[in-house]
Design a protein around this nucleic acid. Sequence first.
DNA 1: TACGCGTGGTA
DNA 2: TTACCAAGCGT
Length: 353
Amino acid sequence: MRELEMSNTLLDWYDRHARDLPWRVSPSDRAAGVCPDAYRVWLSEIMLQQTTVAAVKSYYERFTSLWPSVTALASAEDAQVMGEWAGLGYYARARNLLKCARVVAENYGGRFPETAESLQKLPGVGPYTSAAISAIAFDAPEVVVDGNVERVIARMFAIRTPLPAAKPEIKERAAKLTPVTRPGDYAQAVMDLGATVCTPRSPACGICPWMTACAARKLGIQAELPAKTPKKPKPTRRGTAYVVRRADGAWLLERRPDKGLLGGMLGWPGSEWSETPVPAPPLEAPWQKLSAEARHTFTHFHLRLDVEVAVVPASTQPEIGEFIPKEDFKPTELPTVMRKVFDLAKEKLQNLN
DNA sequence: TACGCGTGGTA
DNA sequence: TTACCAAGCGT
């Protein structure tokens, strides 16, 4: 199949099978001249980095409802944005989201630049996201390559080189397929194909619009591709989290530094997380160690946290962190590992409500 | 180039 | 239970 025939075949498939997503303009609306709002495209693309559509949907609805425009988001309080992002993960995205919104509001008059080259200069916007925004929001013929596209292309051309070494070859192949007409729909079509048909495990080759052109399928190796360089094993780290409740119901919390793990997020005071952590209670108190531990797995290590709880007098002044009044404390604003600690500790401390 | 950086679903 | 995986970026 020629390149033009392939892209047309996929666009026909997309016209019939495009998923209905909150941030998407349907192919029929697009044909009628409707353009997606660059702010919404950008917001969705940042949220979708390494994150599933199912996880993103409710966050996207909440963010667009609270902040309908990039200028509105630029004016938001850091703490509120971090709190709304809690649970979605990769918190550097939220910090860069705010930075980017403020750059667009202050340096670009609230309008996103249209070229991938300009977009990639913005915080948190890399090669994939810049191309995706330019293609989807402005219909520019950019080559959009994400994990889905890598998988589809690696299979289509039976590229056996493991990722990430195969990226340049994949990008070349993807570039030759990218059409000049409807590049925004085409970019979303390849990603939809990867997400719904050319899936990582047990791809549905029988219903694939590109079935006859696929080299991996001819060889029967589609499920083995793309090859990946093996991952390192995850070590286990340990630590202790301290949950303090003041007699008036306030909770002792600490804002983590902007850089590093869970940067900028609220959390419980605690020891370092390491193979042999040193206990580090935030204040003197009659500590009670819980029998259960909080378990959580991050990208590169497993964590097992002991949880110690204490109730302290209403007059207690914190040396570390800050007492948050009970009416201001929202567990949903905690990153998931900290919410797990809370869920273990709350039964022992809830009698102060 | 390789690593640090979250979370929830799935097999 | 464990390992793998998902619309990557910054350093």
